[in-house]
Amino acid sequence: MTARMLPHERIDEFVARLMQSAEVVAPRRVEVADVFYGPVSSPGEVAWDYGTAIEPLKRFLLPQRETMLRFSTDGGLKVEAECDERERVFLGVRCCDVTGLGVMDAMYGGDIPDPYYMSRRERSTVIALTCLEAPEETCFCVCCDAGPFLTEGYDQQWTSLPEGMLVEIGSERGEALARANEDLLAPAELDQIAARYRLAREAEKTFGDFKSYIAGAMAKLSMNEVDPEVWEQAAMRCTECGGCTYLCPTCSCFTVTDRMNGSEGVRERHWDACLNNCYAREASGHNPRPERSDRLRARFFHKISHQWAERNGRQACVGCGRCVVGCMAWAHMPAVTEGIRRGVMT
């Protein structure tokens, strides 16, 4: 599976072909500067020069609210499930978000696959877009082995070179897509592949304002050696808004609720947030995590402990920096990992 070159002037044609057989989800400029991933209606809509998208990709695979079952209680109970079977191409996705998908895959796949997530995921093609420099000052993928270039997890990885996009192939699906469009592609030259590695090294040097000491925090969390004061201090700041969990590419907790209209009903699932007071509260009123500090500890343990990294194949922070942007209380991943390391929140 060799790398190819896609000349700049042929990119729109490539995207147009993708759009013929699939929904193409790509970065789009929604407001002046706000970029969101969303379905594009023409190749010109793709914002190739964006920094990061305001939200990760997860809502396309795990919608904020989705119907799991439809049921009818009229004349004998009937229950049906439905799955989304759209073909999708995720195009121009930042490496952190591609890595986040990998974590979600581990959570929603496994020995009991989640049919709603997996039916979408199996029909998805992922084309990553590398970062030639840190897109935002809040980016810290370099601390998380999640960018600015990837070595795995994508179907194709595109890097913008002066003469076009270098197309790296990461899977059979990515290779099949290249083969189907071979007339638009040329084999990549060795010096173009060398340029990709040079650009990756240079890109890494542009990160650094926000560091996240994942490894050190992971060791302390995993051994249960975090000073409890750190959680108390983080809890004083956190307002339990749940923003970090909704913006996180790997936060995937959900809750389930039934809604009825006469004898017809639906069972829906909604994103949930482990920081919410009621998250673990039982019907009896007993709450195993009554304090916000308990909930913060549980969240960070799930994100970056060695125990969960082992279960998910890697730790769950990808350094996208969205929690840094979204947290109004400075209780985001880099702040907390530094707090864990120092034994005090600064």
Binding site: F254, V256, R269, E282, P288, S305
Partner: peptide, 24 residues
């Protein structure tokens, strides 16, 4: 043990205690 649960199959994470799901 009992915990608040939604999915019962280790997806929703409500019943998590440390690195274990009570459900699974």
């Amino acid at each position: 043990l009992e915990r608040h649960m939604r999915c019962g199959i280790g997806k929703c994470n409500h019943c998590m205690i440390g690195d274990k799901w009570v459900c699974k």
